[in-house]
Design a protein around this nucleic acid. Structure first.
Lengths: 214, 214, 214, 214
DNA sequence: TATGAATGAGACTTCATTCAT
DNA sequence: CATGAATGAAGTCTCATTCAT
């Protein structure tokens, strides 16, 4: 599936609006107006509003498909390096695609799920968790990771923390008196803080050294 | 502001539907039908659909006002005990009000924010963070907590993890082969796991003992 | 099911327009405009355009339910009198409800049939044909009707002739130089001619007297 | 006016679809898809959807032009033989072109008539009736036909019966327990029945013998 | 000559809200 | 105080046709 310039334009505009106002809260008129195309183009190009968001998911998820694979299967890195790179990768992806991950979060929250989209999300998550399990086993085999790591909870903390940080960025700005920063500057700052925070968290929890049984 | 039985019925039904289908995705007809009242009642009682969700926020947030205060100001507990109680409290609140916190998450994600709701959310977060700062300072004064704790990030991890776990509960069930459990059983299981996981996380990160500089 | 004044108004207007332009050829806007109501009233009152035509069928067919029964079961008439009254009854009904029978004819011609409407039509036809079979058997028992009457073909001729006459009335007018007549006058004339014609046809075909085996 | 292969293909597909779903109920997309041509071909070849149906009428009516003439003017047949051949000819034509006559019936029922089509229909009917009048006069001159025949009513019965029989064929099948027959078999059966029925009807009505004054 | 992309009008329906009772 | 009928705006989608190629 490849899309022409106008289709991509529509998808990008839709992504932004869906993130801002939700799927149901965004009308095809909104999208058409913002993308500067005729209203009927959405149906014409994608079939329906529903199919448009499916196209969006298909594109964004295809894009992020291989990054994790190459990282995990890189033979030159030790497990803890991979964990740290993984953390930065997740931070980069989620902050770099705020709109899309916002939409994905909303869709995850919704129980009126579109089957195609749910499948996309489920597949992505399955793949991610499997890669992480593989990484954990590698670290355990090398004797540097603890044996009782619940990877699904660590993943939850990783994604949950980054997601929540992005969703609450305005609040974070305010609480830390960072309102003077512009968006780019602030994002760099936030990413640095998150990176440091999560790496520290993972190191304490995942490695064998100095762990306090609870 | 107190509401009569019918108004409360409407609010509770609306809460469930907003959580399931989103604010824009839920029509006043849906609410009226599910609450078994006339459609015009929503406008009649609350003024508008918008005002209805504001009423919902106002109620739910007023409800949760005092719990945290009493915990933090309890003189009989040591800081680490408070942290652990706090973690359980957050887990309980978020899992016990999944519908409402689902709505709050969605609204936080939305940049088309209703001013009244945004204010409610902001106030709640400010209050929470202040109480936590207070708790942290108490622990630091007692010499059991590290000096360089970024409480806003720890809070982000706490809420983010619990939120994400709730949002992804279907996935968690699947990945851990817990599909045989009924909802109540599963929720108990999940709460236990989250509690253990987050306490461990906080202990490693917050206390002075065994910390690995990063 | 009883309908209020506005609903009846809508149904009657719709009946006329469906007869004139067909179901697909008539928009809800056409109907709303002609009935002098808001467009959304059609959906509001009937659910959809489809349901509107179903309501129309349900009403018209309920109306014509009992006429035939009372005629056929009337003990004071001899079979041939019943046949003649039946012919006049069919002529009256079809000319008196031109619009509706026009719609029914179109729907019968359509293979994109609405299930509810098809059922209505099928039921009506089944009932009619059964009553006629009963009448024929009565006449045969009395020895005045032939034994080899194909009632389904006679019925086809009866309804077919009247239907076609109504559909071709403009042509009939022209061919018989009756264009000076107004509609009421012409209809009376046509009904008389049809009555005479069909009675003669049935007498020759149905009765035992003077029949020429073919 | 002659049409190329693609145009004929379009016309034939359109004929089938118009018969099935009506003119307004058939979109040019439906036609283009079923005929496996580009959507714009309809406008390109015929100017518009309207012009397409006109072309269809023009073709089908030109086709059937001469059959009746040769029959009526055949000097070797006696009037009653011509009547019978005429009946079979009508049955053959209407059953053989069900699609087209279905469309013609619908268009006749429509009061939103396309002028060109109405003219076509009117011309065909005028020609038919004139040929029949000629046949009747011939029979009357020979002393074998009654003097008071209303040919327009007899024609109405002929066309009306055959049309109605075709339109109600599903019902006829059901009522006579012929549902086991395939379409070709059933059609042969129906044509035989109609032929016998109408010939008997005409013989009783048209000829001087054994007529019962009404 | 033939095409497929593109269009604006209009299709049906649902929406939140109002108003007379 | 409560209701249900009614409304106009706006929703998504399909339509027949046009136009540049």
């Amino acid at each position: 599936m490849d899309y022409n310039a106008k289709q991509i334009q529509i998808i990008e505009v839709a992504e932004r609006l869906f993130a801002q106002k939700g799927f149901a809260g965004t009308s095809v008129r909104d999208i058409a107006q913002a993308a500067d195309v005729n209203v009927s183009m959405i149906s014409y190009y994608f079939g329906s509003k529903e199919k448009l968001i499916e196209a969006l998911f298909q594109i964004r998820m295809t894009e992020s498909r291989s990054r994790l694979e190459t990282l995990i299967t890189n033979a030159e890195l030790v497990p803890m390096q991979k964990i740290n790179l993984l953390i930065d990768s997740v931070i980069d992806r989620l902050t770099g695609n705020q709109c899309f991950h916002n939409i994905m979060m909303r869709e995850t929250l919704s129980s009126e799920r579109n089957a195609a989209i749910s499948d996309h999300i489920m597949n992505l998550k399955m793949r991610n968790i499997e890669l992480m399990q593989q990484l954990i086993r590698e670290g355990q085999a090398a004797g540097v990771f603890r044996d009782d790591i619940d990877m699904s909870l660590m993943t939850t903390t990783l994604y949950g923390t980054v997601n929540y940080a992005i969703a609450s960025q305005d609040f974070y700005k305010k609480i830390n008196n960072l309102e003077h920063m512009d968006q780019a500057e602030f994002l760099t700052h936030l990413k640095g803080k998150l990176s440091q925070h999560l790496k520290s968290l993972f190191k304490s929890t995942v490695t064998n050294e100095h762990h306090n049984q609870n």
